[in-house]
């Protein structure tokens, strides 16, 4: 099971902060996960649309579209950071 974490604006938009997902076997990268979540439609399609700035971390490290996702990973989705 992959644990997905939603932060800041994305948590507000999706109405949840985490979920546990059993990913289909062909969903093995960050890009594939985002595309899969987009198929939920509605706010998922809007917030994760390719033009929107969405950052992803896998196991607490910033990830790229090609970063691999394995079972038991923690994947976080969030908008560009605004600290400091």
């Amino acid at each position: 099971m992959v644990r997905i974490v939603y932060l800041a604006r994305l948590r507000d938009a999706f109405g949840k902060s985490t979920e546990q997902l059993e990913l289909p076997s062909d969903i093995g990268t960050v890009a594939a996960l985002l595309a899969w979540l987009r198929t939920r439609g509605g706010v998922w399609a809007q917030e994760l649309a390719s033009g929107r700035a969405v950052r992803v971390a896998v196991n607490h490290d910033l990830a790229q579209a090609t970063t691999l996702i394995g079972s038991d990973d923690e994947v976080a989705l969030f908008p560009p950071v605004t600290g400091g």
Binding site: L7, R9, A57, A76, F78, P79, V81, T82, G83, G84
Partner: peptide, 14 residues
């Protein structure tokens, strides 16, 4: 450190 914090450390302001 400050420039990198602004773009890489996961903080968000509301």
């Amino acid at each position: 450190i400050m420039d990198y914090l602004k773009t890489r450390a996961p903080f968000w302001k509301k």
